[in-house]
Structure formats: structure tokens, C-alpha cells
């Protein structure tokens, strides 16, 4: 079975000429199916840029990045947009649409799938909200939910399209300890049950236990790759 993420010799820079600044240098990374990998490292180490490249949110400059079996080197915008429909995204802030209910927000992740009808979309959204413990809150708008509940809606939205890969950026940053752990454990359990790989960027040491592997980055390079104990000591 092909790895959901295969990165080889990826180098990326912002700016041009004298202003050019390399943020990734010869990065190599693999994420196996169903594996949960946490990317960690100081600010400016390049982990967020790497996440945006894997998420097909930026064009690749150099190297090879295969995501869910598709090579992103030279991919056009339309191709990257199409690939993004097969990836689940969880952001630091939930970024839910305030004028939609929780169920409608989750169903939005299925609207670009022409093979799924309206009733099916809402049914799947409702089922997943039930799975994240929000069965009672499906018709509430984000403004009527707590921070932890909103992030759980975001988790449901990321998972509802049955993606092969979830990319999460500091998903616990806006949550207290209990809510943060609840959200990442929920994410881990649901992803595992579906065989979904997770690549998660975090500074939060409280959630490192969910990872199968920790990848540490510094100055745009991978400086450690292994268990939490092996990488972080």
C-alpha cells in the first residue's frame, strides 16, 4: 500500500534574489497509512510551510512530494484544488462558517463531491457529529458552541469526506488542556478506525502521546525522526 505522504529532497524558499530565504532544505519525510506523525520544532523551522506543501496549498519549487498517490511537482492549480478535496484540514482556529449550523458546516466538506446527494451529505454530517459527541448540537451555530465543541465540529468536517490524510495545524492552541486532549484523542481514534494518516504540527507537549512518530525540524531541515522519547529525549 502506497504511503499517503512521500517527500523527497524538497527545498522551498520565499522571496527572490537578495531577498530569497530558504525555509526548507532537502526535506525527506514519509507518512504511512493510518500513521499519526507530529511535526514539531521552533517557530521558523519550516514545519508550517511543509504542511502547506503537503496540503497542496502552495506550488512545489524543488523536489518531489507525492500525496495520496499524486505527484505535486508541476501540478496545476486545478489539480491541487482537486487533490485538496481528498485531504482533511484542521486549523488552529476552527474557521467554521458562522451563519451555518454545525451539521451544515460539516456537510460543506462534501458539497464539492458531485457523487453525494444533499440528503446523504446531511446524514453523513449528522453521523460524524454524533461520533465526535455532538449529536445534541447538530443544529446549533458555531456561536452557540464552546471552543472545544467548535474544534470537534472542525474535526468532523475534516473527517466526513473520508480523506486518506488529515493535516492539522496547532489544533489545540485555542483550547484548554482538557478540551485539547479530548479533541486530539477523538481525532486519533476516528482516524485510526478509518485508516486515515495524520500529519499534525504542534508546540503543545501535552498531546505528543497521540503520535506514532515525532519528526523534529530546525532551520528547514528534519533533525529528528522517531518516537517521542527518541526525538525529544
Amino acid at each position: 500500500m502506497e504511503n499517503p505522504v512521500e517527500i523527497r529532497d524538497v527545498t522551498y524558499a520565499y522571496g527572490e534574489g537578495a531577498l530569497r530565504r530558504e525555509v526548507l532544505r532537502d526535506v525527506e519525510l514519509r507518512v504511512a497509512p493510518g500513521e499519526i506523525v507530529i511535526l514539531t520544532g521552533p517557530s521558523g523551522s519550516g514545519k508550517t510551510t511543509l504542511l502547506t506543501l503537503v496540503g497542496a496549498l502552495r506550488g512545489l519549487q524543488q523536489g518531489s512530494c507525492r500525496v495520496l498517490g499524486h505527484e505535486l511537482a508541476g501540478a496545476r492549480e486545478a489539480e491541487r484544488v482537486a487533490l485538496r478535496r481528498r485531504i482533511g484540514f484542521i486549523f488552529q482556529n476552527h474557521n467554521l462558517l458562522g451563519f451555518l449550523t454545525a451539521r451544515q458546516n460539516v456537510a460543506m466538506a462534501l458539497e464539492m463531491d458531485g457523487g453525494t446527494g444533499e440528503a446523504q451529505r446531511l446524514e453523513r454530517a449528522g453521523a460524524l457529529l454524533g461520533a465526535v459527541g455532538l449529536a445534541e448540537h447538530t443544529e446549533k451555530r458555531p456561536g452557540q458552541l464552546s471552543g472545544g465543541q467548535r474544534q470537534r465540529v472542525a474535526v468532523a468536517r475534516a473527517l466526513v469526506a473520508r480523506p486518506g490524510l488529515i493535516l492539522a495545524d496547532e489544533p489545540t492552541a485555542a483550547l484548554d488542556k482538557a478540551s485539547g486532549q479530548e479533541v486530539v484523542h477523538l481525532l486519533r481514534d476516528l482516524a485510526r478506525s478509518r485508516g486515515t494518516a495524520i500529519l499534525l504540527v504542534t508546540h503543545d507537549p501535552r498531546i505528543l502521546d497521540v503520535a506514532d512518530r515525532i519528526v523534529a525540524m530546525e532551520d528547514g531541515r528534519v533533525v529528528g525522526d522517531g518516537s517521542a522519547q527518541a526525538v525529544l529525549g
Binding site: S64, G69, A82, L83, R85, D113, G114, G115
Partner: peptide
């Protein structure tokens, strides 16, 4: 270039997009 050649057909078939009318209605 080879990489591009193998990605396009696969991506197109990956998730069927809603038709123009359905897409317009959803928008």
C-alpha cells in the same frame, strides 16, 4: 513532466465534481 502526465487523469477522476447547475445552485 512524467509526474505531471500521470497525475492529471487520476486527479480528474478522484472526486466527481458537481455539475454546473448543481454547483450554481449550491453557490
Amino acid at each position: 513532466m512524467n509526474a505531471m502526465n500521470d497525475i492529471r487523469p487520476a486527479l480528474r477522476g478522484a472526486v466527481p465534481q458537481p455539475g454546473f447547475l448543481t454547483g450554481s445552485w449550491l453557490a
